[in-house]
Design a binder for these strands. Structure first.
Length: 120
DNA sequence: GTCAGGGGACGTCAAGTGTC
DNA sequence: GACACTTGACGTCCCCTGAC
């Protein structure tokens, strides 16, 4: 299995939808992808009405399971990709806020110097 | 060289949530 | 209520690195 670095550069503000959504202080990273066409190799089943023998029913059950696993596999990949993006987003926000905090502290020190009475 | 430990990616399951 | 989607949790595999 070849693992490729397929990170994208999307810079969206994202947050786990069912983790912090209730708090309202964090944007969501849940972005509904448009339901794409089925991946190659997926064959649509015959309608249930056309199944007769137990073997056909078993095959249909197996096919449904494989389809579900394949979809979940892809969903998990996409979920992890979004999570990585979200973490990157948070990290860059931390960096920005740290710089901002540092500047504010410096400004505060300057103002203190200006305002403090000279003791001599 | 090899062994242990850490880390990343993956597949699967299960539970929660949204949609119709 | 059934179905689809999302995501945390878990187990597994593979690769890298440092200690021996």
């Amino acid at each position: 299995m070849a693992v490729t670095g397929d990170d994208t550069d999307e810079e969206t503000e994202l947050a786990p939808s069912h983790m912090a959504a209730a708090t309202g202080d964090m944007p969501t990273y849940q972005i509904r992808a448009p339901t794409a066409a089925l991946p190659q190799g997926v064959v649509m089943a015959a309608s249930p009405g056309s199944l007769h023998s137990p073997q056909q029913l078993a095959e249909e059950a197996t096919r449904k399971r494989e389809l579900r696993l394949m979809k979940n596999r892809e969903a998990a990949k996409e979920c992890r990709r979004r999570k990585k993006e979200y973490v990157k987003c948070l990290e860059s926000r931390v960096a920005v806020l740290e710089v901002q905090n540092k500047k504010l502290i410096e400004e505060l020190e300057t103002l203190k110097d200006i305002c403090s009475p000279k003791t001599d």
